[in-house]
Amino acid sequence: MIRKETLLKEMNEHRKTIRVATWKAFKRNKISLLSLIVILSVSALSTVGIVYSPYNPYQPNFSGALMPPSLAHPLGTDWLGRDILSRLIAGGKYTLGLAFVAILIGATIGTFLGLASGYYLGLVGTIIQRVSEIFLILPTLIIAALFAAVLGTGLLSTLLAIAIPTIPVYAKLVHSAALRVRNEDYVEAARLLKKSGPYIMFNHILPNILHVVIVQTTYYMGTGILTVSALGFLGLGVPSPTPEWGTMVGDAKDYIFSYPFVVFIPGILIAVVVVAFNILGDGLREALDPKLRRLL
């Protein structure tokens, strides 16, 4: 008869081979692999790296202000003599963390809305899509200014200012992806098996459009970081002295001609991380598409 245990084990192992093949396909693209390494190192530095921060990021040292990069201060000091490297390490959790949490919240809500409107269509779907379109025309910066005015500047208003405009983007993206999948015969087959709408949405539609969501989220992480920084730069985001990277650039803009490194070092870091996320998104798009799986 059938060797039950062996078959079950083979099934699980076979499931793993798909993951391995995806990783192999991703690894083939060296530039996106490099981007992943950059993102992971910056994230590690901003979290566990805090322990190794060489100086207190908030402690002024007026005798050592505006020092160019040296052995004692690898990235120099700002106009209050604070170590820029230590400030960048401390600021990562604001810039990256805020963007990450905000995009995650926006993506989750938007994905659910898009799934529901893409599967049910009808009145529910139309309402979700029309409301999304209205929200889509509101620029992020206006919404941010609104929240800053109502709630005051800070973590919460930055978070909302990024999360809320993200929702309609995902609602529309997932809606159109779900529309493509909902007419596939396997969805019809599941309906013939008397499966419920939510069951079909989460078991048949979501797994087959998840790669779209993951890739979009990677791109949007870059955009989110840029928005956090832009808000910080304009004074609508996380207020100083918190060393959010955009706030650091904004606070230092008076020194752009006399001591350009104070502005450029955090600026370059923002640019590098944003570009890394975009390249990572390209790499993931190629590796995750289930349609391309047969080519592995």
């Binding site: 596939e184 015969d185 396997y186 019809e188």
Partner: peptide, 11 residues
């Protein structure tokens, strides 16, 4: 269904 490529969930 007619099209075997679309009648089975690829995942």
């Amino acid at each position: 269904f007619q099209n075997p490529d679309s009648s089975l969930d690829p995942s």
